[in-house]
């Protein structure tokens, strides 16, 4: 028996928003520790890794490890039926071919349940090596979303260049070029608005705008985002989801032909 209950359905709704542009289907691997999802997008240039820890749920029970293969567009349709303040419970029997979502309104006067067919997904699991990154940059998630959106108007790629002075985002194309430089913040009133850079050595890498924009669909999950970069390895874009886990996106850099 698997049962996971969240007091607010909004977290699950936001998680779905954060992955559904990249993935059409994915397996939620559930065990004692919580729920894990790892999947590559169809073109195999980015990978999504989601962790929701058992202790972040209001109630969590997983008697036996279970993999729930879900069509994310169907799951998204079902989650749209939940009010933001509704409690959501995901349930599945061992070896089940369906998963049930139960939504309860705050006053318990409305209880809805939706059963969804599970899919048998043939999965490729990738081993993500422990990496020491040359640069990590922490900044406001809304600021990062804005930068990606603004630079997308100029070209298909964004160059991210990190030095000890700060981080520079650049794009160029037919209409011209754009550069946005952020200096490390000396002091801020709100911690989530700070720009914090840890740098071992400077790094400059180029990434596809389109994917960075997909990743920023996770903005509502966290006030801050962390970018980790090293030469010739994938960029990690991490959003920590308060009290329950994180979503990480890995994107392979573009290289010269």
């Amino acid at each position: 028996m698997f049962e996971a209950r969240l007091l607010r359905s909004s977290i699950l709704k936001k998680v779905l928003e954060a992955i559904k542009d990249l993935l059409t289907q994915a397996t939620f691997d559930c065990d004692d520790n919580g729920i894990q999802l790892q999947a590559m997008d169809n073109s195999h240039v980015s990978l999504v890794s989601l962790t929701l820890r058992a202790d972040g749920f209001d109630k969590y029970r997983c008697d036996r490890n279970i993999s729930l293969g879900m069509n994310l567009s169907s799951m998204s349709k079902i989650l749209k039926c939940a009010g933001d303040k509704d409690t959501v419970t995901m349930k599945a029997q061992d070896n089940a071919d369906t998963v049930t979502f139960v939504f309860e309104s705050p006053n318990q006067e409305k209880v809805s349940d939706y059963e969804m067919k599970l899919m048998n997904l043939d999965l490729e699991h990738l081993g993500i090596p422990e990496t020491e990154y040359s640069c990590t940059i922490r900044l406001s998630s809304a600021e990062f979303a804005r930068i990606c959106r603004d630079l997308s108007q100029f070209g298909e790629s964004i160059v991210i260049s990190c030095t000890k002075e700060g981080v520079r985002f650049s794009a160029s194309g037919d209409i011209g070029s754009a550069n946005i430089a952020l200096a490390q913040t000396a002091s801020v009133d709100k911690e989530e608005e700070a720009v914090v850079i840890e740098m071992e050595e400077p790094v400059t890498l180029t990434f596809a705008c389109q994917y960075l924009n997909y990743f920023t669909k996770a903005t509502s999950l966290s006030p801050q985002v962390q970018l980790s970069m090293s030469a010739d390895v994938p960029l990690v874009v991490e959003y920590r989801i308060p009290d329950i886990g994180h979503i990480r996106y890995y994107l392979a850099p573009k290289i010269d032909d």
Binding site: M40, S43, H44, V45, S46, L47, E124, H125, L126, G127, I128, P129, S157, T206, A208, V233, P234, Y250, A252, P253, K254, I255, D256, D257
Partner: peptide, 14 residues
């Protein structure tokens, strides 16, 4: 011209 590389070049298949 820049080429988007694939993740398989970086991560190990399990």
């Amino acid at each position: 011209p820049l080429t988007q590389t694939k993740l398989q070049n970086f991560f190990t298949q399990i």
